[in-house]
C-alpha cells in the first residue's frame, strides 16, 4: 500500500486543487481528506456519502448544581481557568482533563463524552473517498486525522486499491503530525513567496523528523521566478526531489467555481501538461515502488 500525502506548510498554496487534479489522473486509488478542520476536497469531488459515523472525542465537565456545595476545590485545581466563581464550566476553556471530576468531594461533576464531529465513507467519480468534518472549535483534530487515514487504508485494502491520495492540512502542528507519519511520500506544494519558502522550510524540518521521503512542486511559479529557483535549491539541499513547476493559471479558480478538477474544465492547456508531468514524476519515482516500502535513501534530510 502506498500513500501520497499532499502538504504545504502555508495555507492556500493549491494543495486541494492539485490533489483533485491528481485524483483525476490516478488509477485505482482511494482519496482521503486529512484537512478535517477546513475540509474542501469534497467541493470538487462531490462525494455521495455511503456511511456516516459520529466521531467521539474527549469529555467535558458539567457541574450538577443540585449536588454542588460551592467548596471551590474544582476552581482551585482547574489549570485552564474553565470554572467560574458561579461554578459554571466554560466549555470552550475546558480541556477535558477530568481533574475536577475526580477531586470533587461530593461527586457533583459529570463528564460526558463529546461528539466532536463525524466522518464519511463516500463514492466519487474518481473512486472511493474517506473524509470528515471536525466540530467547530473542537480539539482532537489529530485523532480524527489518524482515524480517516486508517479507514482509507482499510478501504483500499478491501477494494484492492494500491494507492491512497491524501489531502493534508496546513501548518506543522497536531493534525499535520498525524497526517505524515507512515506516508510513502510527501508532496509539498509551495508558492514562490517569502512566506511560502519560510513555511516550506519548517514543514521540511518536521518531515525530516519522521524520515519520510519528500518531493516539491512550485505552484504559481511565474509570480516570482527567482523565488522559485531559491525553493528548488533549498529542496535539493534537503534531499527533496523537485517535481516541476505549475503556472499561475486562473483556470484553477474557474474550474473550482464549477466544482470540477483542472482536467474537467475547458480545453487542454499548457498547465494541464505541467500537472500531468508532475504526476508522472511522482508515480515513477523510486519512493513509489510497487511494494510501498519506505525509501530511506530519499527521505528528507
Amino acid at each position: 500500500m502506498r500513500e501520497i500525502v499532499i502538504i504545504s506548510g502555508k495555507g492556500g498554496t493549491g494543495k486541494t486543487s492539485l490533489t483533485a487534479a491528481f485524483a483525476s489522473l490516478a488509477k485505482n486509488s482511494v482519496l482521503c481528506d486529512a484537512d478535517v478542520d477546513a475540509a474542501d476536497l469534497h467541493l470538487l469531488m462531490q462525494p455521495e456519502v455511503r456511511q456516516r459515523t459520529d466521531f467521539m472525542g474527549g469529555c467535558k465537565a458539567i457541574i450538577n448544581k443540585d449536588l454542588c456545595t460551592n467548596c471551590g476545590t474544582c476552581i482551585d485545581l482547574c489549570r485552564f481557568g474553565a470554572i467560574s466563581e458561579q461554578f459554571q464550566v466554560d466549555a470552550i476553556r475546558c480541556e477535558g482533563c477530568g481533574v475536577c471530576v475526580d477531586f470533587c468531594p461530593v461527586a457533583a461533576i459529570d463528564f460526558p463524552v463529546q461528539r466532536c464531529g463525524e466522518w464519511y465513507l463516500s463514492e466519487t467519480r474518481f473512486g472511493p473517498m474517506v473524509h470528515a468534518r471536525l466540530g467547530i472549535g473542537e480539539e482532537n483534530s489529530g485523532k480524527l486525522v489518524s482515524l480517516v487515514r486508517k479507514e482509507a487504508r482499510q478501504l483500499a485494502e478491501k477494494q484492492g486499491a494500491d494507492l491512497i491520495i491524501t489531502d493534508g492540512p496546513p501548518g506543522i502542528g497536531c493534525p499535520v503530525i498525524a497526517s505524515i507519519g507512515g506516508a510513502t511520500v510527501l508532496v509539498i506544494v509551495v508558492e514562490p513567496t517569502v512566506s511560502g519558502i519560510h513555511d516550506m522550510e519548517r514543514v521540511v524540518d518536521l518531515a525530516a523528523h519522521f524520515k519520510v521521503p519528500g518531493m516539491v512542486c512550485v505552484n504559481k511559479f511565474d509570480l516570482n521566478i527567482k523565488m522559485t529557483e531559491a525553493i528548488e535549491q533549498l529542496a535539493l539541499r534537503r534531499n527533496v526531489a523537485v517535481l516541476g513547476r505549475v503556472s499561475f493559471d486562473p483556470s484553477f479558480t474557474r474550474s473550482m467555481v464549477e466544482g470540477k478538477t483542472l482536467f474537467e474544465y475547458g480545453e487542454p492547456t499548457a498547465t494541464w501538461q505541467q500537472v500531468r508531468d508532475i504526476w508522472t514524476h511522482i508515480t515513477s519515482s523510486p519512493s513509489m515502488n510497487t511494494l510501498g516500502i519506505v525509501d530511506l535513501k530519499s527521505s528528507i534530510q
Binding site: G11, D37, G173, P175
Partner: peptide
Amino acid sequence: APPGTSCPVIAAMN
C-alpha cells in the same frame, strides 16, 4: 490568527 476552525483559532479569537 492561524487558519482553520479548531482549537488554535479559538485560542487566537477568544
